[in-house]
Nucleic acid binder design. Structure first.
Length: 951
RNA sequence: AGGACUAUAGCUCAGUUGGUUAGAGCACCACCUUGACAUGGUGGGGGUCGGCAGUUCGAAUCUGCCUAGUCCUACCA
């Protein structure tokens, strides 16, 4: 093995081997364990968040595979409707200066499929680099043939059950993308705007209570006044009761509109008069419904003013309640230009009372970034209420558990107040809605046109045209857990692997995805007794990975980190290019470049997949976001190197040696028994951590065991045993056996977290540990054996470590060269100390670099020495020629002060009668022991101090 | 407006049903190229656990209030 760990030398080839040998496939044996990958956007690339979640899923998958489960990690990608279509449209505009309408639906779809084929490999390549042990043989795509069937089936059945309906409703309209979007796709942003106060003249000579001939309405959206159909006041507002039933003459359009009473109005806000524009505001729409007035739509799909208003009844049918004429000077104007013109026209008419500054929330499309316009359009909706009920129950009764639990509240609060879900999108890329219209506008829903004709007795003479719209991407991804397994066919995979075990995802898509999967699954999937099935038993919600400053990673901020750059490294120039190239807002490039050059002056070094993964696990505590820290990544890269070198040491000492593979002629040393005991405890602890999804604890325990116990102590303790001067050959064999076997077990423990380095080393170690097999991947995961825990060995080594550390401490504080051997004495020890001394003196001599270690009887006079205590035993290093007296005085005083502080604290505690009477006896007893021990320590240390001082 | 979460060493984070002198990694200081490893070894320094009050024999941990930050949901035109 090379002296230094080089991840690039081992990682790629191992993945290829694993995949070729089919190790990722379900074994077909053992109880099933399944995880569905949250399907990433097929044309995207993995970011750190994906790497984080996928690493967690891989660890769980590999762990259960080694545990003997029939393990499936289902892989696949999402067609991501809007996002993907946008990318291709942008490309088309840039390269050919054409819009999608220039090419037409068929051609565009062809182009998107081409693009999907071309870029779809990025994600799968990245997953492979991460070591993801997914079942590639059954990779799925949310628009493959199987999904097409599942989606049609779900749509048709929901429609038959009256859980899907079509209607003209006010929806969130994206004027840039020309599609409706769901409430969840709207981002409300805080903006500084204005509140314009307009005078609306009263008609028919009516006057207000205080004698004015107008009322004042306040609005943040002046342009919508072109569509006003009423003015509302609160029914109890005495200022306006006389005006109820009267009308105002709407300026500019000269439309007579009624003054109505509605409790929606807040008397205290503004003037207490609200202009009502039912076609362009969700609240006004509700008010409009109550007052049965008509709607006046003034905007086109681009949010420009129409040539002629659409006047409609609430149910969407045409109405002639109002005149359709819109002022000519506004026709075709963009909504924001119209706003300016309205304001200035009110001003010139002397009807603008005032303009206040006003903070408001403005709705933006999360994809397009433009202001959303409420618009009355025909759309398809899922009736969410009935679907939500069993989905809520599944979480309430514990069939599904969220980790951490707090997210259940978030889920409940949204689900209990769920709104109908607008599922139609005016896009081309997606699942086309299985609805057909005849020439009279009758709608037929079925799986195919043939079925429509057959089921409705429509022969070929009746022209049918399919609905142009496609379904929201989340409609198909809601079927992910069962759609990927072959539903609606009753496949063996579906039967075996559904419900799945755990879903690993971010809190940001609990509503978009998790909640909808639960709704769809509980509705469509039933077990043998007809009970609703859940899609997964546990939802493990991860935090977000943020940059080093705690900012969200985003392309426009230029702080995105590519997981592959952590693995392979990247030079500064390439990183700058990557972050600033192909930007939607090129004006940000300079800032990003500066920032990048500052943060990564040296570029990014290669750290390898194992180090990246280990870092992610170590940060994976629950309920908290993660601020990415390159330094931790470096630390864990070093950890990999540590393992690498420990393995080199082990191999060096065991290859070509007798490791007791096929005989029992060996003897275990104290150190052997100790490390075997600690291995059991480590295994038990890691097992528990994984079961609680605390991979941070699991990896921390593993790190601590490997570095601080196996390497720092056990390997060092093995050196004196393996020294040729030791003539206990049986013991040497025992230590060699322990060296390889503990390492071999550790590799298996670590494999789910660090798949590559563990496989690479295991291949060499396994034969020495009498293990056979082609890969570590399918070896049994180590299980703790209580019987192998040797309490005596644990105690003895703790003592041994205490003595050695004390001696090292004296060396350090006294500035004694590590190369110099020194003599040491042990004094005032008890029988146990004496036994331990007798059994282990050679270890101490070796590890503390002593020239001699002598046991002194209590009555013997000790030479002038530096002193440390282990328990009540004194460890003495004679001062002659070694010890700096002043330094020793300082050191002793420091120790004494520490112990005295302890005594003071304990005295106070034990002097408190309430503590002694109320605290549990064992706590009190422990404190008393501590006090006694501290008092003895102080007296012994003082004795030493006086001795030195009187010298 | 309602709700959730977070605040622990210079930095990134652990800390279990309240009970050792509150821990780790990185950074820092000193010494050390010792035959696994300088991507290393040994020793050391560093924290009023955001603030105030309360419950308790005992609070980083439980309760209340406050401050700062993050996020979610719903919104007054």
């Amino acid at each position: 093995m090379d002296k230094t760990y080089q991840p690039s030398d081992i990682e790629q080839s191992w993945y290829k081997t694993w995949e070729e040998k089919g190790y990722f496939r379900p074994s077909g044996e053992g109880s099933p364990y399944s995880i569905m990958i949250p399907p990433p956007n097929v044309t995207g690339s993995l970011h750190m968040g994906h790497a984080f979640q996928d690493s967690i899923m891989d660890a769980l998958t590999r762990y259960h595979r080694m545990k003997g489960n029939n393990t499936l990690w289902q892989v696949g990608t999402d067609h991501a409707g809007i996002a993907t279509q946008m990318v291709v449209e942008r490309k088309l505009a840039a390269e050919e200066n054409k819009t999608r309408h220039d090419l037409g639906r068929e051609n565009i779809l062809e182009k998107i499929w081409e693009w999907k084929e071309h870029s779809g490999g990025t994600i799968t390549r990245q997953l492979r680099r991460l070591g993801a042990s997914v079942d590639w043989d059954h990779e799925r795509f949310t628009m493959d043939d199987g999904f097409y069937k599942a989606v049609q089936e779900v749509f048709v059945r929901l429609h038959k059950d009256d859980l899907i309906y079509r209607g003209k409703r006010l929806v969130n309209w994206d004027p840039k993308l020309h599609t409706a979007i769901s409430d969840l796709e709207v981002e409300n942003k805080d903006k500084q705007g204005h509140l314009w106060h307009f005078k609306y003249p009263l008609a028919d000579g009516a006057k207000t209570a205080d004698g004015k001939d107008h009322i004042v309405v306040a609005t943040t959206r002046p342009e919508t006044m072109l569509g006003d159909t009423a003015v509302a006041v609160h029914p109890d507002d005495e200022r306006y009761t006389d005006l109820l039933g009267k009308s105002v003459l709407l300026p500019i359009v000269n439309r007579l509109i009624p003054i109505v009473a509605d409790t929606y109005v807040d008397k205290e806000f503004g003037t207490g008069c609200v202009k009502i524009t039912p076609a362009h505001d969700f609240n006004d729409y509700e008010v409009g419904k109550r007052h049965a007035s008509a709607l006046i739509n003034i905007f086109s799909k681009d949010a420009t003013v129409l040539a002629e208003a659409e006047v409609l009844n609430i149910d969407g049918t045409p109405s002639d309640a109002f005149d359709k004429v819109l002022p000519e000077s506004y026709v075709g104007l963009d909504r924001f230009d119209a706003r300016k013109q309205i304001v200035s026209e009110f001003e010139s008419l002397d009807l603008l009372e005032k303009i206040d500054d006003h903070a408001l929330k403005v709705p933006y499309g999360d994809r397009s970034g433009v202001v959303i316009e409420p618009l009355l359009t025909d759309q398809w909706f899922v009736r969410a209420g009935p679907l939500a009920k069993p989905a809520i129950e599944a979480v309430e009764n514990g069939d599904i558990q969220f980790v951490p639990k707090q997210y259940e509240n978030m889920y409940f609060s949204w689900m209990r107040d769920i709104q109908d879900w607008c599922i139609s999108r005016q896009l081309w890329w997606g699942h086309r809605i299985p609805a057909w219209y005849d020439e009279q506008g009758n709608v037929y829903v079925d799986r195919t046109e043939e079925e429509v004709r057959a089921n409705n007795n429509l022969d070929a003479s009746v022209a049918l045209s399919q609905d142009e719209d496609v379904l929201d991407t989340w409609f198909s991804s809601a079927l992910w857990t069962f759609g990927t397994l072959g539903w609606p066919e009753a496949t063996e995979r579906l039967k075996t692997f559904h419900p799945t075990d755990v879903l690993v995802t971010g809190f940001d898509i609990i509503f978009f995805w998790v909640a909808r999967m639960i709704m769809m699954t509980t509705h469509f999937m039933k077990d043998e007794d007809g009970k609703a099935q859940v899609p997964f038993k546990t939802v493990y919600v991860t935090g977000l990975i943020r940059d080093e400053n705690g900012d969200k990673m985003s392309k426009s901020k230029g702080n995105v980190l590519d997981p592959l750059d952590m693995i392979d490294g990247i030079d500064l120039e390439s990183l700058v290019e990557k972050r600033t190239g192909n930007m939607m807002q090129p004006q940000l490039a300079q800032k990003i470049e500066k920032r990048t050059r500052k943060a990564f002056a040296e570029g990014i070094q290669a750290h390898g997949t194992d180090a990246l993964r280990f870092t992610l696990y170590s940060l994976a505590s629950t309920g908290r976001d993660i601020n990415w820290d390159m330094k931790r990544l470096e630390g864990y890269r070093n950890f990999c190197n540590k393992i690498w070198n420990a393995a080199r040491y082990v191999l060096m000492n065991t290859e070509e040696h007798d490791c007791a593979r096929d005989h029992d002629n060996y003897e275990l040393s104290l150190a052997d028994k100790w490390i075997i005991s600690r291995l059991q405890q480590t295994e038990a602890s890691i097992e528990k951590s994984i079961s609680e999804f605390r991979l941070d604890h699991a990896t921390h325990t593993l790190y601590d065991f490997i570095w601080n116990e196996y390497c720092d102590w056990y390997l060092e303790l093995s050196k004196p045993v393996l020294n040729p001067s030791n003539d206990n050959k049986a013991q040497q064999t025992g230590t060699r056996r322990t060296l390889v076997r503990v390492l071999e077990a550790v590799l298996r423990i670590a494999h789910p977290f660090m798949p590559y380095i563990t496989e690479e080393i295991w291949q060499r170690i396994a034969p020495l540990a009498d293990k056979s097999g082609d890969t570590i991947m399918t070896q049994a995961y180590p299980v703790a054996d209580e019987n192998k825990v040797d309490q005596k060995a644990l105690g003895d080594i703790e003592w041994l470590k205490g003595v050695i550390i004390s001696l090292r401490n004296i060396r350090g504080e006294m500035d004694i060269s590590p190369a110099k051997t020194i003599p040491a004495l042990l004094k005032n020890g008890n029988d146990e100390d004496l036994r331990r001394f007798n059994e282990n003196a050679s270890y101490i001599q070796s590890l503390a670099k002593l020239e001699s270690l002598t046991w002194m009887n209590a009555e013997d006079e000790a030479p002038m020495s530096a002193t440390q205590l282990v328990g009540q035993m004194e460890i003495l290093v004679p001062m002659a020629g070694l010890i700096n007296v002043e330094a020793e005085v300082t050191r002793l005083e420091k120790e004494i002060a520490k112990a005295q502080g302890e005594i003071k604290r304990l005295d106070g505690k034990l002097g408190n009668a309430k503590f002694v009477s109320n605290a549990p006896a064992d706590v009190v007893e422990k404190e008393q022991e501590k006090l006694a021990s501290a008092q003895q320590s102080v007296s012994k240390l003082n004795e030493q101090l006086n001795k030195i001082k009187t010298m």
